[in-house]
Design a binder for these strands. Structure first.
Length: 312
DNA sequence: TTAATTTGACCGGG
DNA sequence: CCCGGTCAAATTAA
């Protein structure tokens, strides 16, 4: 690998390591969930960027305001959380991971299927941007309403080189993609499957369908409607990438897994912060059985708290 | 008939 | 008020 590409990679990994050390130091001390979440957020962000560089040979990252370590204080009071849920949501928006990649279209083959970056996206808007020759397309995770996954991306054709697309991702996926989901169910013992709790939200009409565990057609598709056909000039994607899809509760409270093997007696609603960058087929999460519950985007918890007790 | 895309309206921040 | 981002009704694709 050329040095020019190695450097940012090393930096990213180093930052990940330092942040992890920070988190480790804080483990024994009283630490607010918020601060913890923030740190984990940064760590995952680092690794994601690094992986992205490796996977695609792509490059670049801007955006993320550099982390000032002083911001994270173990003394940050948990009581802050109690009175400021709305503030937290606001902060969440601002601190949400954001990173960019430049993807070059393979000029020859126009026969290739639609681009897949391993996730399924749904286009929700397109805008002409001031000073840009091409419009910007907006995508959100297909599972937004079903699983509350807040990940989005923007795609914009480069002005200079129209074979280059700049893709800006915002927020990590908290959803389980279809492939992940079926895999999880395969490995979940029958009895535990029956315990999987499905809450049907009643407050939001667009969520009334509830969570579906059966694999339906179309769930595997990863459309990228803006670009009917092109592929990466660097090859690796798919399987390896797909193994890394399952992130829980990194950016948001949107998707929470409650595990009965965990004892959270002293915390009421404890978010599990658990990324499972497993390379094999068995993630710890998958093996233990869990329930999936809704939380709405604004942070309102939609499931009945009494249901929760069955699982903790 | 359902799911995805298109596209103008809408909204909030600067 | 302008601009970028999102919503949602209408339209098209599956």
């Amino acid at each position: 690998m050329e040095t020019s590409k190695k450097r940012p990679l090393i930096n990213e990994l180093t930052q990940g390591k330092e942040l992890t050390n920070q988190l480790k130091d804080y483990l024994d001390k009283p630490m607010s969930a918020e601060a913890c979440e923030f740190l984990v957020e940064k760590i995952l962000s680092s690794y994601e960027k690094a992986l992205s560089m490796l996977n695609r040979g792509i490059v670049f990252d801007e955006s993320q305001t550099p982390l000032s370590f002083g911001e994270i204080s173990p003394t940050t009071d948990v009581s802050d959380l109690a009175d400021s849920d709305s503030k937290n949501v606001f902060k969440k928006r601002k601190t949400m991971a954001k990173w960019s990649e430049q993807v070059k279209v393979c000029s020859g083959t126009m026969v290739e299927g639609p681009l897949s970056d391993g996730y399924s996206w749904r286009k929700y808007g397109q805008k002409d941007i001031l000073g840009a020759n091409h419009p910007r397309a907006y995508y959100r995770c297909t599972h937004r309403h079903v699983q509350g996954c807040l990940a989005t991306k923007q795609v914009q054709r480069s002005d200079e080189d129209s074979s280059v697309f700049e893709i800006t991702y915002r927020g990590r996926h908290t959803c389980m993609q279809a492939t992940q989901l079926s895999k999880a169910l395969e490995k979940t013992p029958k009895q535990e499957q029956e315990n999987i709790h499905v809450e049907k939200p009643t407050q939001k009409t667009h969520m009334e369908r509830g969570f579906s565990f059966k694999s339906s057609k179309g769930m595997n598709t990863c459309e990228d409607g803006l670009f009917p056909s092109f592929k990466f000039d660097s090859t690796p994607i798919e399987t390896e990438k797909l193994e890394n899809l399952f992130y829980l509760g990194c950016d948001s409270t949107a998707f929470i897994a409650f595990n009965h093997n965990l004892h959270n007696s002293d915390s009421d609603v404890s978010e599990m912060m658990n990324s499972t960058p497993n390379s094999g087929s068995n993630s710890p999460m998958m093996d233990m059985g869990f329930s999936l519950d809704y939380v709405d985007f604004d942070g309102d918890i939609l499931f009945d708290i009494t249901d929760l007790e069955k699982f903790v």
